[in-house]
Amino acid sequence: MLPVLRVSGLNKSFVMHAQGGLALRVLEDVALSVAPGECLALVGPSGAGKSTLLRSLYGNYRPQTGSIRIRHREAWVELANAEPRTTLDVRRHTLGFVSQFLRVIPRVATVDVVAEPMLRLGATPEQARDRAQFLLSLLGIPERLWQLPPATFSGGEQQRVNIARSLIADYPVLLLDEPTASLDVANRDGVIDLIRQRREAGAAIVGIFHDTAVRDALATRLHNVALPGAQA
């Protein structure tokens, strides 16, 4: 299969003005590519820049130089320093991001939090709600919680709500930042199954998996990440 995500020459530093312009080089000349059906696991010690790389791929962090090209609407689109509306369109249709943390929206019911990305893609409210309820039950969120806003849920419940929200639209490219951190074994296995199904259906995945059991279950390839100057 041909890659759907190609990264080359990616450089990212953080300049901290409050620290007198201290520059932290985190990514140096990063290159990778991912094809449909592949799951690339980013590996490296804590602080090596795995999350920075993942966030740069999502367009959340702005790299100084380099290229991040993604197949979007049957064409290659450059995401590095793209116009906001380009990045938004890619995120809406092609590129999903699963993080550990749910950004809670005041007053919105859990089922609607989950259904929202699918609604934005043009699904009917009924379709989106049905799919949201299916994912919530698959991830073990009790039905009595569906109509409540997730603000008061436990950390693990919020995390699973977030996973349901991030996976409800069938994105061809998925970025996963520790999707199973702090989940118990039963819930972890449910999340693994869901992601594996996506991979087998042809999603191209890049992920950070702290838990080696999860990594072994999902990854098809490893990619080493090290700070510039550190021994790989």
Binding site: F14, V15, H17, A18, R55, N60, Y61, R62
Partner: peptide
Amino acid sequence: QGLTDQVLDDPQHAYTQMLVA
């Protein structure tokens, strides 16, 4: 200027970094 999450999560200008912090 930029996407809202870019500006808030990866602020570039000294003043924006101060605001976010």
